[in-house]
């Protein structure tokens, strides 16, 4: 458990834990890719995988929260990299070239929440959302989407 937290120590804004026993590390949005690159180099190709990307909308804070859930292998620890994006302009660097497994998560997060992953050429509307919703330019998981 120490290894990964050591790797990201210099990038971390704050750390706290989430139930049950997950370490959350908050990082600035413009360093997401840098952090993940350091993690990948530190853990090796088969040492870690991206399990989930979760985006959550907070209209009252005017922010969108983006969580990367990473699972180390083979000791099965879950780490959460958390970053906050402005709601009006949610842009973050894509990590597709580091972890191709982030494809499904990035495509879904863009389609449902409108977070733009810069450098990911595969993101598009109608990945999951039906045409009639996507053509209205609303992102269904935003709280004010009216969906």
């Amino acid at each position: 458990m120490e290894a990964l937290s050591e790797l990201v120590k210099k990038y971390a804004l704050t750390t706290y834990s989430m139930k049950p026993n997950r370490l959350v590390i908050e990082i600035p949005r413009d360093r997401v890719k840098e952090v993940l690159k350091a993690i990948k180099e530190g853990c090796g190709d088969t040492g870690i995988y991206v399990s989930t990307i979760v985006g959550t909308d907070f209209p009252d804070k005017k922010q969108v929260r983006l969580d990367y859930y990473l699972v180390t292998h083979p000791d099965d620890n879950v780490y959460v990299l958390r970053t906050w994006l402005p709601r009006e302009d949610p842009k973050v660097d894509s990590i597709l070239d580091l972890f191709p497994g982030a494809l499904s998560g990035e495509c879904e997060t863009y389609d449902l929440l409108g977070v733009v992953f810069e450098g990911n050429l595969f993101i598009r509307r109608e990945f999951f959302v039906p045409t009639d919703v996507a053509s209205k330019e609303v992102f269904p998981l935003r709280k004010d989407s009216g969906v």
């Binding site: 995988y49 399990s51 083979p74 099965d76 191709p100």
Partner: peptide
């Protein structure tokens, strides 16, 4: 290949069939 399993985030029997020991039950 095992390398592709972790890079592409494949899980379950798909991963274990490639020799990557990912199993959430170990938690």
């Amino acid at each position: 290949k095992p390398k592709d399993v972790t890079l592409h985030g494949l899980v379950g029997p798909t991963a274990r069939g490639s020799g990557v020991n990912i199993d959430a039950r170990r938690e």
